[in-house]
Design a binder for these strands. Structure first.
Lengths: 197, 197, 197, 197
DNA sequence: AATGAATGAGGGTTCATTCAT
DNA sequence: GATGAATGAACCCTCATTCAT
């Protein structure tokens, strides 16, 4: 019989990689990176213990791939927001999307945050990715708020960014005990008072 | 040698326990709980590898003891602040102390935050301690700000608390790259505009 | 396409087998058998990871085939020498060829020698091949030297054979640090003093 | 109860280290280094799987320790021989000891020889030890034979040394099929003809 | 109260081998 | 005949924990 075509192999590979990354993301996010064993990942992905190593050279590389996917997703979202013309709408959209994602995927936020907290002992490559991402977050609200006419100073933007991060962390930790909807409403009421929500 | 009295034994025990907890706190805080081995703790404490198990039934129990001490410390600080009469000064003092401690002991904040993020799989006892602490944080600023005449609504207090937590996390992650002084100044300028700093 | 004839298939098979054995020989010789993976062999041979198993039932069988080829090569060389009439020339030719091959293919000698040293746990078939070869070496110089009038006794031949093996091992280990040319010259000077070199 | 004294611990440690090294030597020698697992070593030594790592940082370090012991033993033997005044007796003693050890411990010779053959991929430290040992062997017979009035030239010494190595290798491989006694007798007859054996 | 040698489960990783196509 | 994805046993090593002294 003829061997499979390159395209077929490509598809198989992609599927397996996706399965593994998905399992890894879920487990890393829920239990933390250190507390997740490669065997667990393989099991959850429904593959043999050795397969992940066909696709990822090490546990660290798997984490990297997972994080990279996450970052791409994040960039995609931001990208979509930046396509919006109206500055106020743009900012609103970002805030809204953030809340939405926070609720939908708080585990993923947890993973990134937990990694950020132990950046010192992360493999350099991961450290770079995560660090750069975190730095970017800091600078995102300043221009946006100015554009939207919502803040006169960088300081206000800084504080706003801190608040958003704080909300995220508090929600990650407290989950259903956290008044996410209330604080979201409060934010919109405070910064977009004219509009109806 | 005369047999030691019960009190003497007690003192020896307490000293050993203290040494071990101190070493554990430092290592857990700096390297993370998972990345710290009991052997490292013992070595840093200057005791034999087996001794920690004379006082703490397991690594988890040691963590618990360490966290409990940390919480006590925190309560003590809050307690000091609450001794202040003037509501505005009380709030200012808490904020200032928070910043001070953040700079002095960001590692400890990191430990607690990292633990909070993986609460699901923490031993129940630790989970309770940490969770309760985090919950308390949420509720602390509301009354204080109202007392101090700084916020009309609970929502504002909620946002303020989130911001403080956000600042903490951002600082833990970025350390010297974070404009801590600037944001601190901005906070005081915003919430305590009359006064000189 | 016309269906290929049996002969064509045969040729294709032989080419693949040859490619794989060649790659295996080179890698086994350079890195050792244990340190060479089947994946490496396949890659070096330019075939898929599974193909070697179409031709060789296991890594051991592949080794066997490689060794067998090596032995055949050796026998061929010996055969050529034995075609020489003059006994002295015959012996000289063998010695010279040995040195030549030692320099050219010390890696292959290394492979065989290394295998010989762990014969106990070699698959029986390999053990037989290697063992028999080694035994033959022992007996080869006796008749030759007698024929050539160079040694009166079997003992001298035995010592001569040991020396040749010793030179080989020492050269394999020390490579360029070993005075191969010098010892070769010394041998000829000692056993073929009349002639010029 | 009082803890054991430092001397007691020292003794326990030494005993365990010795047990482990002994087991390792035997297994490495018999099966080869690569083919021996740490679990096997532990089992043969009668200790738990993890204990060897209390004493040797890695499998390589264990090998190093084993080799070092072997080298020390070798040096001790040579040292004893060098205490002999009469040059001829000295040489005879070395040769005799070599044969004796070869018979008694051919496995150990095998280990060192096998390692020598794969020096390229040995950890540098081991490579150095083994390489230096092998080099020393080359130079030992020259002075000795001259002293003993047995060889006029360096070349003869070189050939003699090669022969001794060759005998060793042949014996390691063929074991009981090898005429060790006969070749030993032949050597003495050739180089020490005056004496009776 | 204190010591540190010893245990063994479990984690990351490799690789010979199989098999559907 | 050929491909390479998939399997899983086995390997090296770490570390929480136990225990005799």
């Amino acid at each position: 019989m003829a061997p499979r075509s390159e395209a077929q192999f490509e598809e198989i590979r992609n599927k397996s990689k996706a399965k593994i990354k998905e399992a890894a993301l879920e487990l890393f996010a829920r239990q933390g990176f250190d507390s997740t064993s490669m065997a667990q990942v393989a099991k959850k992905a429904g593959v043999a213990k050795g397969l992940p190593y066909n696709y990822f050279a090490s546990k660290d590389e798997l984490l990297m791939a997972v994080i990279e996917d996450l970052m791409k997703e994040g960039e995609h979202l931001i990208g979509q927001a930046f396509a919006i013309e109206d500055p106020k709408e743009k900012l609103k959209h970002i805030i809204e999307t953030t809340f939405e994602w926070l609720q939908l995927h708080s585990d993923r936020f947890k993973l990134v945050t937990a990694l950020s907290l132990q950046m010192d002992q992360l493999p350099p490559k991961i450290r770079d990715i995560v660090g750069q991402k975190f730095g970017a977050n800091l600078e995102i609200f300043g221009p946006l708020m100015k554009e939207a006419g919502l803040s006169a100073t960088d300081d206000e933007a800084l504080m706003f960014g801190a608040m958003m991060d704080g909300i995220a962390v508090q929600y990650m930790v407290m989950k259903d005990d956290y008044p996410l909807e209330r604080i979201k409403a409060a934010i919109f009421r405070t910064w977009f008072p004219d509009e109806t929500h």
